Simulated scan of single mutants.
Amino acid sequence: MQFDYAYMLGLFPILLKYLGTTMGMAVIGMMFALILAIIIANIRIFKVPVLNGICQLYISFFRGTPLLVQMFLFYYGLPQLIPVLVGINAFTAAVIALTLHFAAYMTESIRAAIIGIDHSQMEASLSIGMTTSQAMRRIILPQAARIAFPSLVNYFIDMIKSTSLAFTLGVAEMMATAQTEASSSFKYLEAFLAVALIYWAIVVILTRIQLFTEQKLNKAYQR
């Protein structure tokens, strides 16, 4: 069989209709993952009793098990033990899995960025009457954000690509659409190459944005 360029080009409008679903999962997952990662990073830094141990166990589990298994666990497994989760839809289950999975990785990046800030910054903040929480919020975290920014963008890019696993739960996103189109036409190469090119384009755009933003953030620190 010859490669059907016309068929592949015709797939792009169809696949792009579901770009909103793909990006929606990634953006929502990233927002909640970032909030969770900041909270856990602070618990780990200040070694909060009991919570620190729980957070270490959480990080170990979600970094040590595949994302696909976690998606199945939230969508198919947990409703057996927690009846209230029976009504959870596939989109929500996928977002929860993405959030918890990537928060476990982002926690360590944020923690390393915070630790990388000179301790004198905290001491100076406390000496002028700030509380520890005020110093973290106003002085430490803004500086740590610049350090952690490149790795956080990389995690966001990885999260966008990982949304393709949501089709296994029945979420109608780009990968699921490509699979459906390929199955109906038997033109698997054209369908999967089309969706691959879309993901690639998204990553290239985000990488350019990342580099531009890094230059802006680092401009004040250049001599």
Rank of each mutant, 00 (worst) to 15 (best):
L73Y: 14
L197E: 04
A166Y: 05
S185D: 12
N52Y: 13
A33Y: 03
Q222N: 09
V195N: 06
G53Y: 10
F72R: 06
F3G: 07
T168H: 02
R208N: 01
A94Y: 06
L34M: 13
L152W: 00
F74S: 01
A196I: 03
F3S: 10
I35W: 02
M8E: 10
F3C: 12
S184F: 11
P83L: 03
L85H: 08
M136H: 07
I160M: 09
V171G: 07
E173Q: 06
T107I: 10
Q143V: 00
V69R: 12
I115Q: 14
N52T: 07
T168A: 15
A135Y: 03
F3T: 10
Y105Q: 05
T163R: 08
Q210D: 07
G77M: 12
L193C: 05
L206S: 01
F61H: 06
G53L: 04
L67F: 10
I209Q: 02
E123F: 02
Q210L: 12
A172V: 11
F74I: 15
L51H: 04
F212Q: 06
A172Q: 13
Q222V: 08
L85Q: 07
A33W: 03
I38L: 14
A93D: 05
I35F: 12
L78N: 05
T180A: 14
E173W: 07
A97P: 04
L141Y: 06
A112D: 02
Y18A: 12
S151A: 12
Y18H: 13
K17D: 13
G170C: 04
S184G: 12
M25A: 04
Q2W: 11
A178L: 09
G64N: 12
F72Y: 15
I147Y: 00
L57P: 00
A104K: 00
P150F: 00
G77W: 10
S164M: 02
A93F: 03
V84A: 15
I110L: 15
F149M: 01
T163A: 06
A178N: 08
L11R: 11
Q222R: 14
I128S: 04
I82T: 08
A172D: 09
M31T: 13
I39F: 14
T131N: 05
G77S: 07
Y155S: 13
L15G: 08
L211K: 11
S164W: 05
G20T: 11
A196V: 02
S127Y: 00
Y75Q: 10
T180G: 09
I96K: 03
A172C: 01
V69E: 09
L206K: 08
S60A: 15
A90Y: 06
F192C: 07
A220S: 12
Q121K: 05
F91T: 13
L36C: 10
I110D: 10
T131M: 03
R44E: 14
G10D: 10
Y5L: 14
S60D: 15
F156D: 01
L152I: 11
S151N: 09
P150Y: 04
A220H: 03
P49I: 02
T131V: 01
I39L: 14
F212E: 04
M174S: 06
